[in-house]
Design a protein around this nucleic acid. Structure first.
Lengths: 205, 205
DNA sequence: TGGAAAACATGACGCTCGGCATGTAAGTTC
DNA sequence: GAACTTACATGCCGAGCGTCATGTTTTCCA
């Protein structure tokens, strides 16, 4: 028996809201965007269809809210783990590992689903773009702050290369590619990045 | 008036089959997997629903066939352009460009749609995996053949890194990221690859 | 040349989806 | 504590989906 003694309106609202958004992410992760229906979402959230209707007038609106919810989570997680990073070459390797775990987890899986869906859905795309750009910029800021010895231009290059490579690898992982090969590739990329880092810090072009 | 004088059964069959598969790819590209319906497909192919029923008993079967059709096309295109590649460092840069154009066009867009959909669809995934692995291996073979001076282990690493980076960039492109930045990143990666190539050929570790 | 078979068209069925109208319970305000 | 607003539940509707049953045309083969 879960005693729901006395909840203020704001509490109730926020509670079912996050329940819905979390359920949405759950659905995206293990059903995919195509199979994610409103009925399934509110079934997992333990609320009725009327509730989601009350909070989000349309399904697209729910998805848009889910994007923000999702990105906020990812951002928090990345920021927290990026704060305590060693400097120098080992810092670069560690940062790459962090970006990999950040961009390859279940959260990022859901994001990818939304991305691909957004390609052919203008409304969803409009909702995603600013939020995603904010995430990218914030993470980049953290990274450049950590690797301060590197000229910011180079650091930015390395960062974006890592992010895009990671996303490609995440896609490969989703299809069930060989995990060992992914590890090898990531290790190789770390070696390359560290090498480039040292080159750039000792003899900047 | 298109006079369809006399078509043998095999001709008729193959004709509408490829028409259906091409239409499927079209739908995937500009509607996305979620919105791709059988009705829309046979509308674009100019045939009835009964026809697709006759050739493919279920929608998943059609998609599986589309995957193969798609991969065959991609494979042909890549193989054709990979054949005439210069050797040495400029060859590496040219190869990267080729992989980029190959993995970022409309064909690859459709493949990405199917990939993401396949993550939560076991049947589709089972259809995609072998075909995609074959594509990867075939392309890799071409690449290693072109850059023969490089130790095959290094060539393979460079190849897979490029492919995964390219796929990440393709995803970024689909969302509407900055094209200039993608060009910069690709150029930077080419520089890095050429550098690594020279290091490996002059002083193999 | 006529009948069998393959290739395709047509229409209908069951199902699920998203959205809406309406009813009920919980909290807020005076 | 009564009026009022907010939060949620229930039930229904039209639309679109994939699939199947059945008719029609075209090619093949003996």
């Amino acid at each position: 028996m879960t005693e729901t003694a006395h909840r203020t309106q704001a509490q109730r609202r926020e509670q079912t809201r996050t329940a819905l958004l979390d359920a949405t992410i759950d659905c995206l992760v293990d059903l995919g965007y195509a199979r994610t229906s409103v009925q399934e979402i509110c079934a997992r959230a333990g609320v009725s269809k009327g509730a989601v209707q009350h909070h989000f007038t349309t399904k697209a609106e729910l998805m848009a809210a889910a994007v923000e919810h999702l990105t906020t989570k990812l951002r928090r997680r990345l920021a927290a783990s990026l704060d305590d990073l060693p400097g120098g070459g080992t810092g670069v390797a560690a940062a790459i590992d962090l970006l990999w775990t950040g961009y390859s987890g279940t959260l990022s899986t859901a994001v990818t689903e939304l991305w691909v869906a957004a390609r052919t859905d203008a409304e969803l795309r409009a909702a995603i773009r600013p939020v995603d750009r904010a995430l990218g910029r914030a993470t980049l800021e953290h990274v450049t702050q950590v690797a301060g010895e590197l000229p910011p231009e180079r650091a930015e290059m390395l960062f974006w290369l890592t992010v895009n490579l990671t996303r490609g690898l995440a896609l490969d992982a989703e299809l069930g590619g060989d995990p060992n090969r992914r590890r090898q590739l990531l290790d190789e990329w770390k070696r390359i990045a560290v090498l480039l880092y040292q080159d750039a810090t000792t003899a900047p072009s």
